[in-house]
């Protein structure tokens, strides 16, 4: 898990797709999900503490939560509820999906294998290129 985080920080990306050994898409991991995991559950859960000022800087707790993540595998942490887009899907569908979510859009082939990930920037760059042609 921590290796993946290091890689994401190195590559300056916020999301990364997770695939199984044969390349079939499983889900996405995100820096935001990792950040969420560092927050104490007592504050995060519904009905939890709304004011944490009295805790001070909380570094001990936050770093200990980060250490706990070391035992996890990326697959345990991946958001698996993201339906991948099919390679033949129209570009309008890709645009709608990206406009309505904060995550990038994984694209898979007929066998479910990951072909790539569409980001907002890549899509907009594509539109811009079409216009200037």
């Amino acid at each position: 898990m921590l290796d993946s985080l290091r890689l994401m920080l190195e590559k300056q990306i916020n999301h990364a797709p997770i695939c199984d050994a044969s390349g079939v898409f499983i889900g996405l991991i995100s820096t935001n999900a990792i950040l969420q995991a560092l927050i104490p559950a007592s504050a995060k859960a519904e009905g939890g503490l709304s004011n944490l000022k009295f805790v001070g800087d909380g570094m001990g707790m936050l770093t200990s939560h980060l250490r706990d993540l070391a035992h996890l595998k990326v697959v345990d942490f991946a958001n698996k509820d993201i339906p991948a887009l099919h390679e033949d899907s129209p570009i309008l569908e890709a645009t709608l999906r990206l406009a309505h979510s904060t995550e990038p859009l994984p694209v898979v082939g007929k066998d479910g294998k990951l072909l790539g990930v569409i980001s907002r920037r890549a899509l907009l760059a594509h539109f811009l290129a079409q216009r200037t042609d």
Partner: peptide, 8 residues
């Protein structure tokens, strides 16, 4: 919630 925070 306080109990959970302190044990955490």
């Amino acid at each position: 919630p306080v109990t959970l925070l302190i044990t955490d």
